[in-house]
């Protein structure tokens, strides 16, 4: 029988700043490991795949083992091969969308922050409308106008996200511009363009990069959603979204086909979110420098 200890309760130990920081960096490490694993799969898929993407020699819906690490799908294609190409497509979709979103969003956001009066109102209203517009609907329009390729999907996701990034950047820049050090820089003769590059962007960067990491995760999910609907990369390039869709009918008999891409998708998104969380603290020089 366990004895209940009735002596003075041990006070809950408060996390010291050092403890908190190490926990933060642990978040970063776990995030990097998860996302890095997927990135590694993606990189390896560029130079080596267990089977060709259109190799249907494996026998239908074979279970794991017997030359196929994760088994095969209903057409006899190797699932591990598909998961690997899927990783590549997911990483490409995330990076591509975030690049578009960052390039367009930061430019628009900075310009919008400097805009005055009616121009400011117009830009803000435009961004709000773009944000209110469902990403999937926008993507369908773009895919319909172009063709169902990974490029169209990435373009659509990137455009939709650039509105979100632009709105965030506009607010962040406006807040920084109101700071005394901007006026101080201006009084010493720093031009507007130089002020933006030297003072504004570095000061919005910590918040921005965390948001971009989150956008990466959202972009991966959005691409999976689009290819689930058949609007992503065309076959034989397996994307996780399409794998999920194809495995849906046979889920009860061959669950690996849906579980494998599903789990990897979750791991990548969680990994990227953990990175974002870890970056939040690491990028703040006030906490970073206190260690020294």
């Amino acid at each position: 029988m366990t004895q209940v200890d009735v002596r003075t309760p041990v006070p809950a130990r408060k996390a010291s700043p050092d403890k908190r920081r190490s926990r933060r960096s642990a978040t970063l490490v776990v995030g990097c490991v998860l996302a890095g694993l997927i990135a590694l799969l993606a990189l390896v898929s560029l130079i080596w795949l267990p089977y060709a993407t259109d190799d249907t020699s494996g026998g239908r819906l074979a279970g794991p083992g017997g030359g196929h690490l994760l088994g095969t799908d209903k057409l006899g294609r190797d699932l591990f091969t598909q998961v690997m190409t899927g990783s590549r497509i997911a990483v490409e979709a995330g990076l591509g969308s975030v690049l578009i979103a960052a390039g367009l969003g930061i430019t628009l956001g900075v310009l919008a922050a400097f805009a005055q009066g009616w121009l400011d109102d117009t830009v803000s209203a435009f961004l709000d409308i773009l944000i209110a517009f469902p990403t999937l609907l926008l993507a369908m329009l773009i895919v319909a106008a172009r063709s169902a390729t990974l490029g169209s999907a990435v373009l659509a996701i990137g455009l939709a996200q650039s509105a979100v990034v632009a709105r965030l950047v506009r607010i962040l820049v406006k807040r920084v511009l109101a700071q005394d050090y901007i006026t101080a820089a201006r009084t010493s003769g720093t031009s507007w363009s130089r002020t933006v590059v030297a003072h504004v962007l570095p000061n919005i960067w910590p918040t921005l990069v965390v948001n971009l990491a989150l956008q990466f995760g959202l972009a991966v999910l959005a691409e999976a959603g689009l290819s689930y609907l058949g609007l992503g990369a065309p076959p034989p390039n397996a994307s996780w979204g399409r794998m999920l869709q194809e495995a849906q009918a046979t889920f009860t008999t061959a669950p690996v086909g849906a579980l494998a891409p599903g789990i990897l998708l979750v791991l990548l998104v969680i990994g990227v979110n953990l990175i974002a969380d870890g970056l939040r603290d690491t990028l703040d020089p006030a906490t970073r420098k206190r260690r020294a």
């Binding site: 005394d180 050090y181 820089a185």
Partner: peptide, 24 residues
């Protein structure tokens, strides 16, 4: 104006913490 600032006149502000860029 940019040419004049700093060369012809420069300013010291009231609050030195906020007048310096925290990240530089």
């Amino acid at each position: 104006l940019t040419a004049v600032r700093g060369r012809d006149a420069a300013v010291v502000f009231q609050e030195p913490l906020t007048a310096l860029d925290p990240l530089m």
